[in-house]
Nucleic acid binder design. Sequence first.
DNA 1: AAAAAAG
Length: 699
Amino acid sequence: MAPYDKGANSRADRSDRARHPNGTPAARSAKHRGFRAPEPTAPRQKQRWDAEERRARPSSGERPNWEPRDSRGSRPAWEPRGAGRPARGDDRAPRSFDRNDRSPRRDDDRAPRRDSGDRAPRSFDRNDRAPRRDDDDRPRRFDRDDRAPRSFDRNDRNDRAPRRDNDAPRSFNRDDRAPRSFDRNDRAPRRDNDAPRSFDRNDRAPRRDNDDRPRRFDRDERAPRSFDRNDRAPRRDNDAPRSFNRDDRAPRRDNDDRPRRFDRDDRAPRSFDRTDRPTERTPFVPADDVKLEKLQAEATIAADVDGVTFGDLGIGGNISRALAELGAASPFPIQAATIPDVLAGKDVLGRGRTGSGKTIAFGAPLVEKLMEHGGGTKRKMGRAPRALILAPTRELALQIDRTVQPIARSVGLFTTQIYGGVPYGRQEGALERGVDIIVGTPGRVQDLLNKGKLDLSEVVISVLDEADHMCDLGFLEPVQEILRATAEVTPQGNRAQKLLFSATLDTQVAALVEQFLHEPSVHEVAGEDQASSTIDHRVLVVEQRDKDRVLEELVAGEGKTIVFARTRAYAERLAEQFEDAGIRATSLHGDLNQSRRTRNLSLLTSGRVNVLVATDVAARGIHVDDISLVVQADAPDDYKAYMHRSGRTGRAGKEGTVVTIVPRSRRRKIEGILEHAEIEADLVESGPGDRILAELAAR
DNA sequence: AAAAAAG
């Protein structure tokens, strides 16, 4: 579709549906995007500002579409903006499409993040960068934050009893590990840095407690690991194997905590699993009896990375500076854990929730690696790409490119997005001109591959984000075909690399691992579980006939809310119902054309609407700052879905609430999911008008 | 069973 261009968009949009009544103007106006800079300081004000601006402006471009969705929509004032996009800043949006999409991105979001300060700077850059997409960058920062929280608590956990967990896949228990931190210091030598390391990390995030929770039980168990650790002093683990015995984890939580700490150090020792890592590296053992779920992995504790710099990990100066601009001044645990192995040419499995720095964990070393072996072909017209990054949704692919592109550009490499729903022209043109890194979704990549427009024979590094999801029916075959089309060895004769990342990486990836990976190292970050977090989980048992009214009361609050529905039709219906009720809401699902999807997501990130009703297309990886409430209008299919959906809130150590609505008949199912996810939540019967609804909505 | 991913 024409959608691309802005102008086009507008037209397209209308056609799409007029659904959105909001009337919104699209004007995200520059401000948002452009603005990012300000963020730190006073984000909110800006938003308001935006709103005003929007109203003021006529919309030129974008928004036109919106128009009032149907009649009904008389949109509240807010929407009226219709602003168009003016040039500049926001404008970015206009730019390309893709970009645009991105637009939504972040800026806004990020802003909040931590250091604002830092970011600020970037902002400017952005402009310059223009070319690139820049935006992306920023986002990262945030991520960082999120993670942070973890830390300390850990110890506490010990007490907790051993959870069971195991079962569950959760495997990761990250949390548990939490403890780590501090210890680290003790450890002394640790990497060089150690000294330095300090806790900064901590700062980041205080990690949250979360950890704790989950961890609870297990922790203890894990303890064992520890031992070894000590020995290791030097850590860095890399070598050492971060230890992880994920398996151990099983118990997950608990253990972690405590142990972790030690472990870290020890880890090395630990060995069992990983231990060797390098050497031994246990072959990823999938399954076996235990479900793979728990892949064993070496765990990295936040403390371990204190004081470590990207340079220490082997990342060059240009890339390190690009990362700093993105807000990643120093590596997060998952990055410190995987970067060395990726640079060493190994296949890597990384478990880390999005926003925990996963994108940089594979993006930075990928670019560094390309520089190494790539050399000469750089910038040659028509050169074939040498790296490929696949994601399950277009929005996630765009988000990843926003981060990877600036990193690549810092060393003269180019990325291009290859995803569906948009015209082929731009993508084919980029391929003809020659690019170094492809970031996209399976469908379009496979399409261009079969059309002979995309040559993957020189791809020596392939990344699968949300890898477990990429192994689902429907995704697996295209992914296998794509990976088969990539190179087996590098020009230097080394094995081409495959990197698999996901917050819920489990044995589901066994098929791909066995077919395409060679002795992969497995990494995870202790105490980083999704479960762990500052998220308050609630389950409301509601009569089917009262469901819609209950939902309306829940989303009536001021905070940003994402409502997950099982089907596209229900998501659309709820969005319309909310709008009719005077609530600024929009939707995101596969029935919308890409320009609309991009726009609607940006409406939420920019604050033009505070309720987004989506299908699971928005469950994984999407970063939107400050989501205070996640409502599951329909219970998730499994614990993974629960973890990914709930992970949209509680980021950066902020408070977050997840409310799941279930009919009485689904009580058992949701209880099973919560247990599997190692999340504790009380089930409460509720109905329209209950005070609890207003209380949850007010957060 | 649904959703996502090519059109």
